[in-house]
Design a protein around this nucleic acid. Sequence first.
DNA 1: GTGAAAGCGCTAACAG
DNA 2: CTGTTAGCGCTTTCAC
Lengths: 350, 350
Amino acid sequence: MVDSKKRKSVATSIKDIASEAGVAISTVSNVINETRFVAETTKLKVLDAIEKLNYRPNIIARGLRIKSTRAIGVILPDISSSFFSQVIYGIEEVARKKNYTMILGCTNFDFREEIKIANKLIDSFIDGLIFFSGFDNYEFIKKIYDRNIPIVVVDKELGDKEIPTVVIDNASAVENCVDYLCRYNHKKICYVSFTEDYQTTVRQRYEGYLAGLKKNNIDFDPDFVLMSEEMRLHETASGYCLVKEFLKKGKLPTAFLTAADVFAYGILRALHEEGFKVPDDISVMGFDNILFSQFTKPLLTTLKQPKKLMGNIAMDLLVNIIEGKEVKEKNIILPTSIIERESVTFAKDI
Amino acid sequence: MVDSKKRKSVATSIKDIASEAGVAISTVSNVINETRFVAETTKLKVLDAIEKLNYRPNIIARGLRIKSTRAIGVILPDISSSFFSQVIYGIEEVARKKNYTMILGCTNFDFREEIKIANKLIDSFIDGLIFFSGFDNYEFIKKIYDRNIPIVVVDKELGDKEIPTVVIDNASAVENCVDYLCRYNHKKICYVSFTEDYQTTVRQRYEGYLAGLKKNNIDFDPDFVLMSEEMRLHETASGYCLVKEFLKKGKLPTAFLTAADVFAYGILRALHEEGFKVPDDISVMGFDNILFSQFTKPLLTTLKQPKKLMGNIAMDLLVNIIEGKEVKEKNIILPTSIIERESVTFAKDI
DNA sequence: GTGAAAGCGCTAACAG
DNA sequence: CTGTTAGCGCTTTCAC
């Protein structure tokens, strides 16, 4: 009756092992989890049966009882971003150390997908969640938090100090970049960024740019703000296009400051094609210090985010929350620094 | 007795909804899954209860019964690789279309981690697996296959035609590169690659290099083979170091051919620093055509792998297997092509 | 030392 | 149209 019509191969279960070994299923469970003493001979029988039938306990069924899978989920918008992947690397590092498994859910900057994937992970499979959102979706995050799911939000300030976050101070980081550029006498600084509509983080960087101008007594010029609508998926290309277009208008800045290194790469290319020398004619400054910035021509001067550290700390925090440890500081702000390379020098006087 | 001592907040379950709405749990299940007709009024009561208690069905418990979660796992060694992320993008695209959720497990080129993560995913959580391995681990893959887990292996030829794979012909791809270089009169072609010990794919590329030399009557010179032990984690840097070191010896090739674009970036940098002009003094040819190769200086001539297509096809194949459809061809070989840009020109005669 | 049985949250017969 | 119940694979009392 319950014949081969059933789906898939019936995976071997604890019951099979029990009958193969001629013991009770609780005994099998006990030898697998070493949860109480089992006589050596019985243990051997069980182990043999497991070996013979190539048995692997079903983590999910276990999770259903135990309410823990020792897996954590990471929601991120874009796997191909070097920034994300460096943070992931940091997460992974402590996950491994603490014997958690990290599962990635990638949303491709799709808002609905973000919700779908997060929910799918949360629905009892994972013990906790690290959230890189591509959006300002406080309500959704708040909902998760309220369901008592251990969560930490990375790279986005939330306004709600209750929810654990690990971030940098984006505004003052960019402000520092402007300061740096000003020390090289730049007064015409063109800012290239993602569009700021959806993202606190991006907006804060823009505010940092504005604050930096003000602080250094530079008048704001709307012509010197280039925003890509591209939602990050092809940032380098869009940095290229934006600047290529911009250059045609003939109104030149002395420096480009970008909200991400990837934009800078495209800008470098565009400037080269249009016959400008970097940094002699125009300076270019990035933000992130991703790996590749050590290999551009010229080498990219940029603001370093502590990406791996961000991942380490986020995961540490999450584990503490999961394991119910006392968490002293749940809103962590990481330091940044400027990496001086070749792409910035003194402004050409005009 | 079963008091607040229990871990976590007790998530609201279907039972809670049933009693809140005053119906049977099967009715709740039925409205959630639309699996049989439910009177409008009852349905409303249930929906209200769900809303009110902020209920989300537990996918895992469902999966335990249904033996399907509509999630597929992807095992990959390194999230930061642009090559991988492009393939992932292709996988994701069809996953979304077919209403599957993609879960990534990242192994950081750790062999044991690979097994651990794969097992964790397999153990009943996912419906199928796409496997990018960092290693030649046929035995492990075979074991999975034998357990009747739907699996497709990407970017690695397996020798076992039973197991579904989607790959390119690495050997002839590299051979084509050598041919291409030879058409530009190159006779001293230095090959830069990962060490080939662990990876069929890498080994096949090397064999392609050898075959290419032979075909074009070029004597093999072991001095012109540079292999990085770095296991990929910092390929660009190691391409840089290898070539920097190599250049000091004074024995110059007319062209560098690499097993991955990322190496080429480092080589470009090294050559620049040592005062060589690319391509006038020395040509450089990459392999993969990842995004960034459109932004190097000079633009990188390279072999294009159909990365997104690879992902699309792998996922299509996997879904067909999961859903028990007839699969005509389970070992798919994708075409490649050479993208001509700026980094290769005629060999300087010496 | 070990077994029997309840139950995690859910679906799918089977009844009515 | 709706309710009852068995059972997915596992852990964990409670007995013996």
